[in-house]
Design a protein around this nucleic acid. Structure first.
Length: 419
RNA sequence: GUGGCCAUAGCUCAAUGGUAGAGCUCCAGAUUGUGAUUCUGGCUGUUGCGGGUUCGAGUCCCGUUGGCCACCCCA
């Protein structure tokens, strides 16, 4: 038996990495004043179909439950968020700055950076239509990447504006029902030969390609970049009108983060969706909103490929699994005394482990080492004194057992945790 | 949904159609109570699964499942 295709087991080492990513997501979010929420893993199938159209329907992880309801594992957070906000927004002053760390599902063939399940950080500002909200949200995105150890040479956030294109199309004598299709061609233009794009665009080819080559001017995006410059984050961002994003519900600024080497798919992406909440709530609530998402799979791959980010992650993981002390039971007749001390230390919030069964002393030290213990506390012939060994310096010291707590709390490497 | 490559010990991988191996990990030892390195010994396989060809298949053929990669699409 193994995990279902596209689903992951998290062995302790994998779980440690995941926890690091989550901790970083939460830490940076709080730094920007965002609060965490969550919603159901399973939703009414209609919630997702209502908004996203048929293409997403093919990739939905859906089934009929025992009550005969058509349900789906959430493929994205935004519909749930919109539903929650529509119902509860009166209880919160605006703007609402919310984030969450949900697991998402899709039923689709797996490939690099894409499984059937992943964790995807979501971050949204609801109830503020201004450009400053756009800047704030993109700043979180950039700072998030920076917090993982990536610099402006490693990643870039490419920023665009759907409104720019809508204005353009309005001036082009093109029926409105063809706008979405044209946006999709623009979205794909980077990934296919220029001739093909031109052919698909038809009469619009010349002006559109000119804009994609840098011929577009957007006053709004200029102000957005100014905002990032004020924050010292502009070097992480660039205006790129070729970014459109696939989802139909975006209304204004859209952006995607990539590794500069362009080795992986987008690391993060988002945009403004000012009409979605009204649409999903049938008009009972109408709030402008902007949000972005960042998945753990691509981010994890990028971290593994980046020496600095990997070192930072590994250091954090090592710090998290540190043990303050490993109690070595050198003489079994001291086991009872040793366990009493183990518990006393744990009561003081130290992280302590010891051998559950009689074990050779050498092996106990080996375990202490493998578990990342700072100190070994040896119970044996010295009783009622114990021998405290600093596992890094290998220095040993005899300490009366009643002074052990004081001794440990005086030790610089341990004093941070115990209380 | 389409196409290409792959599947051998817990892990990484060897083995011209002729008795399935190595390294690492793990376990046990190297005289009494000290971590690393080293040394010795030991465990581990229906060669993913099911058929077929052959005197004989890990190896060749077909199917199937799973994995990797690209396409499609992208939350």
């Amino acid at each position: 038996m193994q995990a279902l295709p596209g689903f992951r087991d998290f062995l302790p080492s994998d779980c440690a990495v995941r926890n690091y990513i989550f901790a970083q997501w939460r830490e940076v979010s709080r730094r920007y004043g965002f609060v965490e929420y969550d919603g159901p893993l399973l939703e009414d199938l209609e919630l997702f179909k209502k908004k996203s159209g048929d293409e997403i329907g093919k990739q939905l992880y859906d089934f009929t439950d025992k009550g005969g309801r058509a349900v789906a594992l959430r493929p994205e957070m935004t519909p749930t968020l919109a539903r929650m906000v529509a119902g509860a927004h009166r209880d919160f002053r605006k703007p609402m700055k919310w984030f969450c760390v949900p697991q998402m599902f899709r039923y689709e063939r797996m490939q690099r950076g894409r499984l059937r399940e992943h964790y995807q950080y979501n971050c949204d500002i609801i109830g503020d239509a201004g450009i400053e909200a756009d800047v704030e949200l993109i700043a979180v995105c950039i700072d998030m990447l920076r917090s993982f150890g990536f610099g402006a040479d490693d990643v870039v956030v490419r920023i665009s504006d759907r409104e720019f294109w809508v204005e353009f199309l309005r001036g082009q004598d093109l029926p409105e029902d063809q706008w979405q299709q044209t946006l999709e061609v623009i979205d794909k233009s980077e990934r296919e030969p220029r001739e093909k794009t031109a052919a698909r665009l038809g009469e619009l080819a010349e002006p559109v390609l000119k804009i994609l080559d840098g011929g577009g001017q957007s006053e709004k995006l200029g102000r957005l970049m100014d905002g990032l410059r004020q924050r010292g984050l502009a070097e992480f961002a660039t205006v790129d009108l070729g970014i459109v994003r696939g989802l139909a519900y975006y209304t204004g600024v859209v952006f995607e983060a990539f590794d500069r080497g362009r080795n992986l798919r987008a690391i993060a992406g988002g945009g403004r969706y000012d009409n979605l909440i009204a649409q999903l709530s049938d008009g009972t609530a109408s709030l402008p909103a902007i949000g972005f998402a960042m998945g753990d799979v691509v981010l994890g791959e990028l971290m593994q490929n980046h020496a600095g980010a990997r070192a930072k992650m590994e250091a954090a993981v090592a710090r998290e699994r540190e043990l303050d002390a490993y109690v070595v039971i050198a003489k079994e007749e001291r086991r009872g005394d040793a366990i009493a001390v183990v518990q006393a230390l744990r009561n003081q919030h130290y992280r302590v482990d010891y051998p559950l069964s009689p074990t050779k002393v050498g092996r106990q030290f080996q375990h202490a080492e493998q578990l990342g213990a700072h100190a070994a506390v040896l119970f044996g012939d010295e009783w009622p004194q114990v021998k405290v060994k600093d596992l890094a310096t290998r220095e040993e010291q005899l300490v009366p057992q009643e002074e052990l707590l004081a001794h440990l709390s005086a030790s610089a490497s341990l004093s941070s945790r115990g209380r």
